[in-house]
């Protein structure tokens, strides 16, 4: 290995290591609350409807048949408090997480395609 090559490779190593460290500790923007418009747009794109807490509460207290509540948060969040009767189905909000969850989700939701399902 020549001096030049060694120097070049050492520099490359510095850049690589520095890059990885920066990536690990990169400043994260604080998770901001999504605005109402954003949530609506997302729902439209995803083809699902939104439901308010009051509306859901009314349906819930009426004991609507077939109502399924799915808690998509992490298991420990579910453990520390959830809607009574909700099932926990932790899903990572990434395409990989969604792809992995497809099979189990179908099983969870059941064969009845017209049942009322509420995610939160």
């Amino acid at each position: 290995m020549g001096i030049k090559q060694a120097l070049f490779l050492s520099l490359a190593a510095l850049v690589l290591a520095g890059g990885a460290l920066w990536w690990q500790h990169r400043p994260m923007p604080p998770p901001k609350e999504a605005t109402y418009e954003e949530v609506t747009a997302e729902a439209q794109a995803g083809g699902y409807c939104l439901i308010t807490t009051e509306e859901l509460g009314r349906l819930y207290l009426k004991e609507t048949p077939g109502l399924l509540l799915v808690d998509t948060r992490q298991e420990w969040e579910y453990r520390s408090g959830h809607l009574r009767g909700a099932v926990n189905f932790p899903m990572e909000p990434t395409w990989w997480g969604r792809w992995r969850a497809e099979g189990p989700l179908t099983q969870l939701l059941g064969a009845d395609k017209d049942r009322l399902i509420v995610f939160y």
Binding site: C49, L50, V118
Partner: peptide, 22 residues
Amino acid sequence: YTKVYRDPLGYPAWEQAGLPAA
């Protein structure tokens, strides 16, 4: 599935409304 809803406020709002939680 045809009737898919999302409750964007989720558990914290539910708990505040005093609805049944577990």
